[in-house]
Amino acid sequence: MKRMLAGLVALFVAIPAYAKLNVVVTTPDLAAVAREVGGDQVEITTLARPTEDPHFVDAKPSFIVRLNKANALIEGGAELENGWLPPLLAGVRNPKIQSGQPGRIFCSEGISMREVPTALDRSKGDLHATGNPHFMVDPLNARIVALHLADAFTRLETSSAGIFSANARKFTDALDAKIIEWERMLAPFKGREIVAYHNSWLYFAERFELKIELFLEPKPGIPPSPSHLAEVISKMKEMNARVVIVDPYLNRKTAETVARGTDATVLDVAQFPGGVKGTDGGYIALMDYLVNSLAKALGEKK
């Protein structure tokens, strides 16, 4: 019996060895880094689209088929996908991506999570128990994820270990050079106030020493009320905050109304490569866009 089982397992393990690693990734930011590290050794399928609200992706049955055939599943690991990934996983019947298997990769491992609530209280909005899940907008975190993925891919495909580590090295080297450039570009705006719709820019703000503490949402996941917006407008005037950043899936009109009342600029931003025009190139292209457009907007609105 045991031998039969071992044979069966060997058969299952042996098949992917001849093919590329079939990797399913929940969000496009993680997918971009996975693509850098995996290179042509992996086939990446991304579930959420770059313009989509990552908290509310539909658990489409077609995703079950993709997950069923995957060698690995890469997810954020910080409850961002909590609303749609669990029902998909309930039906995938793919032992390779069960929790605890090498094919199940949580990118938040090794990341210092911020805003981990000491008490979970939904009167404060929809908080995540593991902390603010939007950690990928800090390029240093992307660096950690890249190295983590190289390790994870190596565990799945030992023969390509060299390729994965070389790819990761190439990516982190490029990123390191860029981090210095980005920090320099945003340095003149240290301490400036920027208004966001949702609290998804904390890690970015901390890295570049900006202040993104004022939100159009009164609490995470709670829609803006007129009284809250009035308060935001008066605070913006007080703080001289002149830039409002909006993700593609958030209500730009709300941001425009606020901006009109405060002579501020509305800036389209995205957490995901491809979420705004000109960011299809990958993670570094996205960060380039974010830093450049933010520096420009902040420079115009002194």
């Binding site: 210092s112 340095a187 020493e209």
Partner: peptide, 19 residues
């Protein structure tokens, strides 16, 4: 501009967990 010379530069300190 602004490449900090201060070795205790906050931006390169690990973002410590608040847990």
């Amino acid at each position: 501009p602004g490449v900090q010379t201060n070795p205790a530069n906050a931006s390169t300190q690990p973002l410590g967990p608040t847990a």
